[in-house]
Design a binder for these strands. Structure first.
Lengths: 152, 152
DNA sequence: AAGACAATTTAGAATAGTTCTAAAACTTGA
DNA sequence: TCAAGTTTTAGAACTATTCTAAATTGTCTT
């Protein structure tokens, strides 16, 4: 388990290095969490986790590091209408989100499962389409992710 | 012109009253602006406008009134990922938005022009789908709104 | 292995948007 | 007109995030 963690952290250090971010202890701990362990965490979630597993990190370093990870293309920062804090998403491929309103939990949605066909005419050029589906999971008890809506 | 404005304000007072909001001078002035004059204003925009046309309103009243209008179903508050401040939308019918990224301006998009067909299976129930299309208007010089993307 | 220079981290101040608080000013109805 | 309830207000408080300036750490050179 310790060996696993060390291997994991080593791997994360390499990811940071090859993205052009110098792997300091704090950055490795933060990246380890957002890239490998967390599920749509906010900066506050990251800070709370680090306070448990790391001797000392400041809020400033958490934000600095998350911003660096975003700038270097390792994660994305996303703001949703239903919450103030940004969430960080380690899935870099294009995808949408499903919000289970009772629980507030976010699930990734494969764009293949959502047809979006804007017919806006020739007067504009579309660079991106954001989709947030709000609703409620009917049977959250069924443990596994379905093919189409998967907890992340 | 003065007569128009008075008639308009009277109408707005009636709208407030029939929505269950007591029409005070401040509320009428704020509602007149957000329901009839403004285009996707923020609370700050509303405050700035009122400071020009109304002897005195506090920030607290602007927020209180906007919240009351939202609660009574006369406007909607929307938060977008690209900005911190909420915008208020007097169009209550279901619609999407197009963001012209160069200008930061928002346009309403008729849902009929965007096919959204989520195929999420039977494990969830969808209550609403939010769509934000980002891009850039190719020919903003063409004065009028096109059939499909209309400035509001 | 020491000294210098740059990079990183830190605590705490600052900022933006919004809500809260408690007091003052209005309305309303009897 | 007076009491009771409502509304408005200034300013404090709050949340999420960024900034600042000082302290610490790391790296390079020799």
């Amino acid at each position: 388990m310790s060996r696993n963690k060390e291997r994991g952290m080593h791997k994360v250090a390499e990811i940071l290095r090859s993205a052009g971010i110098r792997p300091t202890a704090q950055r490795i701990a933060i990246a380890q969490y957002v890239l490998r362990e967390a599920d749509h965490p906010t900066a506050e979630d990251v800070k709370a986790h680090l306070d448990r597993v790391f001797p000392m990190v400041s809020t400033a370093t958490v934000y600095n590091t998350l911003n660096a990870l975003v700038e270097h293309g390792l994660i994305r920062a996303i703001k949703f209408p239903h919450a103030d804090a940004a969430i960080y998403d380690q899935k870099m491929h294009h995808h949408y989100h499903f919000l289970d309103e009772p629980s507030g939990r976010l699930y990734d949605v494969d764009p293949a499962d959502v047809q979006v066909k804007p017919q806006l005419g020739a007067t504009c050029e579309i660079t991106e389409v954001d989709v947030l589906i709000r609703g409620r999971l009917i049977d959250p008890g069924l443990s596994g992710p379905s093919t189409t809506v998967s907890p992340t």
